[in-house]
Write a protein that binds this DNA or RNA. Structure first.
Length: 360
DNA sequence: AAGCTAGACAACCGCGTTCCG
DNA sequence: TCGGAACGCGGTTGTCTAGCT
């Protein structure tokens, strides 16, 4: 393995930085700005490689960085984004002002991942462990016929509206990002995960992958705007090729919530609101068989974009739950802790799965 | 008080991508 | 167009510290 030239040089200091070294970096950056990091050590009088200097600046010395602990809102955002796009730490960090990708990554690895595991939720898939084991048992069989395509279209519509709004009023568009973009990302993540097991449904599979790419593009655009305060270069959307969004679409882009979700009080959320839809598979194997037998009929329903009310409520409930986080944080309870409080309910909801699956 | 352990976080490493001559 | 340098990212390792025995 060829190491970077800077690392081959002898007499380069490694390890923790001293206050004196920090001062040299700060003095250099204040005078010359950032950029050309390979020249920084020589100009600043440091025996470090440029890469190390850049890391020290971006992860610690930058004046816009926060050094206090993560807020519940930030926890929520990390969990949501990780659920949607995985370990894309730089993208996640760009949604959290004052946080670096290293901060987010460390916080995830040391706290959030562990807490989710303690809740019985797989931090990788964001599904309950019991459900994952149950899914393994169901591989080869038909799963609950997805109603996600219709849901996906609905959420993608929100995402497209966001995009249309972006080019007309960027500030307003990004103010609405939480309420519009995130549900779309979560829906696409659901779809992409579903794709793994619904591989034979080739038609929906291609749509799922496109949808996921669209979501990632939107996140990237959001990151670009946050960083540069300008509209990113145009991105060609699939929807552009099919039917360009009309100017009137932006006026109807306000988030919509079902009445069921709106009826919830801010703290009245359930731990399973944060699970992916598969958690609502019938626990009874016999019921699953019935569901499988009806799959072809329901697949036909998907083409007509018929969205069951239960799912609509679920999506709205998830949005509402995330809004509720602000209230829970005001009381000093992190949302993870709040969900931990509901652990008994979780065990009550999945008694069979929890008891049986872990004996495999 | 000394040793051990786990948690937190800073820093490094390797690799892919982008930039530039 | 190509190749090397620079940059950025995600995974991993190292170091410090607090708590426990």
């Amino acid at each position: 393995m060829v190491r970077p030239p800077c690392c081959d040089k002898l007499n380069l200091k490694r390890g923790l930085w001293t206050e004196e070294e920090d001062a040299k970096i700060l003095a250099h950056v204040s005078k010359h700005g950032t950029g050309n990091w390979t020249a920084v050590p020589k100009k600043a009088g440091l025996k470090r490689c440029g890469k190390s200097c850049r890391l020290r600046w971006t992860n610690y010395l930058r004046p816009d960085l926060k050094h206090d602990s993560f807020t519940p809102q930030e926890e929520e955002m990390i969990v949501r984004l990780h659920s949607a796009i995985g370990s894309r730490w730089s993208i996640i960090a760009q949604q959290l002002p004052g946080r670096t990708d290293n901060d987010v990554k460390n916080y995830w690895n040391t706290k959030l991942r562990k807490r989710l595991s303690e809740m019985g939720i797989d931090p990788v898939t964001h599904k309950p462990f019991s459900q994952i084991l149950a899914d393994y048992g169901n591989i080869g069989g038909l799963r609950q016929p997805g109603t996600r395509i219709g849901s996906l279209n609905k959420d993608l519509k929100s995402a497209v509206m966001f995009k249309s709004e972006l080019y007309q009023s960027p500030s307003q568009a990004f103010q609405n990002i939480n309420s519009q973009l995130m549900p779309a990302i979560m829906a696409t993540q659901e779809a992409s995960q579903d794709t793994l097991l619904n591989y034979n449904h080739s038609g929906s599979r291609s749509l799922d992958l496109l949808a996921e790419l669209q979501a990632i593009k939107l996140v990237t655009e959001a990151s670009y705007y946050t960083k540069n305060k300008t509209i990113p270069p145009p991105i060609i959307f699939v929807e552009d090729l099919l039917s360009p969004p009309s100017s009137s679409s932006s006026s109807s882009s306000s988030p919509t919530c079902s009445s069921a979700a709106q009826e919830k009080s801010p703290l009245d959320f359930s731990w399973h609101d944060f699970l992916l839809e598969d958690a609502f598979l019938p626990a009874d194997p016999h019921e699953q068989e019935i569901v499988a037998e009806n799959s072809s009929k329901e697949l036909a329903s998907q083409k007509q974009n018929i969205i069951p009310q239960s799912e609509t409520n679920n999506e709205a409930a998830i949005q509402e739950c995330f809004k509720a986080k602000g209230t829970s944080s005001a009381s000093g309870i992190s949302f993870v802790e709040a969900m931990l409080d509901q652990e008994p309910e979780m065990f009550l909801d999945f008694p069979n799965l929890l008891e049986e699956s872990f004996y495999y």
